[in-house]
Simulated assay, not measured.
Amino acid sequence: MVYSAWMTAILAGVICLVIMLMIMPGLIRYLHKIKFGQTEREEGLESHKKKNGTPTMGGLAFILVPTIIYIAGSFILPDMRFSQNILIILLAYVGYGLIGFLDDYIIVVKKDNEGLKPGAKFLLQAVLAIIFFMIYRSGSSTEIWIPLADIYIDLGWAYFLLVVLMFTAETNAVNLTDGIDGLCAGLMVIALVPFAVFASVQHQYPVLVLIIMVIASLIGYLRFNLHPAKIFMGDTGSLALGGFIAAVAMVLKQELLLVIIGFVFVAEVLSVIIQVTHFKRTGKRIFRMAPLHHHFEKGGMTETAVVHRFWAAGILLAALGLLLYFL
């Protein structure tokens, strides 16, 4: 059964990768044609100003390709069957992607760099999280697993607060990480690998297949997003990925390991919170620039060097997450 699931996952992943490699050049040309380009902030790094006009909303491709293929495959392959867990993950993936698309649309088409108002964006993210909790609660427990201690604690209705926090925090953390070429997509590929292993060990084969499909789609996207990037994922892609990994962690009962495995994302959002809070209190900055990746760029590190170091940190954290799971 495990062998069959992995074969299905690899085959579906290869199909996603090939399709992504085939459609991305056309998507880039189309987004150029309709002028769906990136607008860099005036206060941003000078080296990033040349990115103005680079097509954005590339996340549409790696959302739609695995989603459509999975739905089609669910009619014929037992390892791609629909379940409550798959429904939650796909709703999170597409739902948060839609919020991101609305944000990107306002920025690109309406020429409003602020995009969705922060309050409206947070409200939409929270509402989606509540919906996922209600669906999940109808057929699953509110327990969380504690690594190392190997015990389960039932949070009851407090689990509701954890879910809302997990989805809103993760989507915003991934969104903030999408600031330099290849960083966010590469980190997400790395972070999803342990969850594929968890799904396999737990015999949640449809979840395994879907994770591998998203990983393969991201690899196809990365082919065009590595420095110098020909396309960006936009909020469409980053919010979708944050929702996807949060939903995967929830259905696999690895909510706490998500924090460890995805700690680079956590560090990015913490750097912004610390910077803003400290500046409001003292008028001084702790970091040269936030999020954290810009701090290192501002210190003279090249964009590619920052990405490679952050990827290395992501690999170590993913390995730590796997170690804690099996201890």
Rank of each mutant, 00 (worst) to 15 (best):
Q275S: 10
E268V: 08
V94F: 13
F310W: 00
I76K: 03
Q204I: 11
L155D: 11
P66T: 09
F101V: 08
F132I: 14
G100R: 05
M188L: 12
E43W: 12
L31V: 10
L31K: 05
Y152H: 15
L270R: 02
T39I: 04
Y159K: 05
S74L: 12
K298F: 12
A9R: 06
I180Q: 04
A247S: 15
H203T: 14
W145I: 11
V209G: 08
I286T: 11
V163W: 04
I86F: 07
E40H: 08
A216F: 07
F62Q: 03
I273V: 15
P118C: 10
H227E: 14
A319H: 00
E114H: 15
G242V: 05
I212F: 08
M233N: 06
L98N: 01
P78F: 10
A240Y: 06
Q84N: 14
D112I: 14
F122W: 10
G100N: 01
H308M: 15
W145V: 09
R285Q: 09
R81W: 03
K110P: 08
D150N: 15
F263D: 01
L208N: 06
A191C: 07
F122Q: 11
M7P: 00
V2H: 03
I88Q: 02
P78G: 08
P118V: 12
Q38K: 11
K111H: 15
F160I: 06
S47H: 04
I261E: 01
G100Y: 04
P291Y: 11
I23C: 09
I151E: 09
N85V: 03
T39Q: 06
Y93D: 07
F36E: 04
L77H: 13
A5L: 00
L322W: 00
E255F: 04
S217F: 05
E42R: 12
N175R: 03
V109W: 11
E297K: 09
L192M: 15
F326L: 10
L123W: 01
L252Q: 03
F326M: 10
F224S: 01
M134D: 09
F326H: 12
M1A: 14
H32K: 15
R223N: 14
I274R: 06
F167W: 06
G243I: 07
M1L: 11
D150M: 08
Y96W: 07
K280M: 06
A169C: 13
F167A: 06
N113C: 00
A216C: 14
M188I: 08
I315Q: 00
L162H: 05
F326K: 09
L17C: 00
F198C: 08
M188E: 04
G283E: 13
F296A: 05
A185M: 02
W311M: 00
K280I: 03
A199P: 07
S200T: 14
A247N: 12
L21N: 09
L270M: 14
D178W: 06
A290T: 15
L192E: 09
G242S: 04
E114A: 15
G314M: 03
I274K: 09
V276S: 12
V209I: 11
F326Y: 14
C16Y: 01
F75M: 13
G73T: 13
